[in-house]
Lab assay of single mutants.
Amino acid sequence: MQRVNMIMAESPGLITICLLGYLLSAECTVFLDHENANKILNRPKRYNSGKLEEFVQGNLERECMEEKCSFEEAREVFENTERTTEFWKQYVDGDQCESNPCLNGGSCKDDINSYECWCPFGFEGKNCELDVTCNIKNGRCEQFCKNSADNKVVCSCTEGYRLAENQKSCEPAVPFPCGRVSVSQTSKLTRAETVFPDVDYVNSTEAETILDNITQSTQSFNDFTRVVGGEDAKPGQFPWQVVLNGKVDAFCGGSIVNEKWIVTAAHCVETGVKITVVAGEHNIEETEHTEQKRNVIRIIPHHNYNAAINKYNHDIALLELDEPLVLNSYVTPICIADKEYTNIFLKFGSGYVSGWGRVFHKGRSALVLQYLRVPLVDRATCLRSTKFTIYNNMFCAGFHEGGRDSCQGDSGGPHVTEVEGTSFLTGIISWGEECAMKGKYGIYTKVSRYVNWIKEKTKLT
Rank of each mutant, 00 (worst) to 15 (best):
K446F: 01
Y22W: 13
C157R: 00
D405I: 12
F348D: 12
C141R: 00
C69V: 04
K247V: 08
D111H: 09
V154W: 09
N245W: 05
S329I: 04
D95H: 13
G94Q: 09
P235T: 06
I390F: 06
C141M: 00
A149S: 07
F345P: 02
S156D: 10
Y341C: 04
G272Y: 05
A149G: 06
N213Q: 10
F424W: 08
Q216R: 06
E159S: 05
A164V: 04
T417F: 02
C396L: 02
I344W: 06
P120D: 13
S411W: 14
S354T: 13
G280W: 01
V153S: 11
I390A: 07
S169F: 07
E259A: 07
T458R: 01
K455S: 06
N304K: 04
V331D: 00
F424D: 01
E433L: 07
D232K: 10
A337W: 02
G13R: 03
L23F: 15
T29E: 09
G432M: 06
Y312C: 06
E323H: 04
I275A: 03
S184N: 13
M394V: 05
E142V: 04
Y161E: 00
K68D: 15
K109A: 07
F196Y: 10
N42K: 06
S204Q: 03
C108G: 01
A192T: 07
R140P: 13
T386M: 14
G442C: 13
T29A: 05
R364T: 13
N5R: 05
S411D: 15
M437V: 14
G125R: 06
V368R: 15
C435N: 06
G50S: 03
I300S: 02
P375Q: 04
P101M: 11
N304I: 03
Y115M: 06
A37R: 15
W118R: 07
V174A: 08
A173G: 09
I344N: 04
V248G: 12
R373I: 07
T445W: 02
A265L: 02
N166G: 03
T389G: 14
Q2D: 04
F78A: 09
I136C: 06
V183K: 03
I454W: 00
I309Q: 11
K39M: 11
A279Q: 01
T81C: 08
F388I: 11
L163K: 03
G412M: 15
P333H: 01
D111N: 11
T276M: 05
Y450Q: 00
R83Y: 09
K311N: 07
L189H: 13
S114F: 03
I15F: 04
T461N: 14
E288P: 08
E54T: 06
V183D: 07
K126L: 13
Y22M: 15
C157S: 00
E76M: 15
K459M: 13
I344K: 07
G421Q: 14
D378Y: 03
E288Y: 07
E159H: 04
P120V: 10
V353I: 14
S49W: 06
A164Y: 03
I284L: 08
I210G: 12
H302F: 06
N104W: 07
E86T: 15
C170H: 01
D110N: 14
C102F: 01
K168F: 13
K387N: 15
F424E: 00
G122T: 07
G413H: 15
E401M: 05
I210C: 15
E61G: 13
N304C: 15
C134V: 02
V278L: 07
V419P: 01
E142T: 10
S114H: 14
I284Q: 07
F399N: 06
H302L: 01
I336E: 00
C145T: 03
Q90E: 06
R379V: 14
L383T: 14
Q167R: 05
S49G: 13
N42S: 13
K274E: 11
R226N: 12
R449D: 15
E67T: 11
T194C: 13
E208M: 08
N135H: 14
E76L: 14
A366K: 12
C119M: 01
T186M: 08
T381E: 10
L163E: 02
G236H: 08
A266M: 03
W118K: 12
D378M: 05
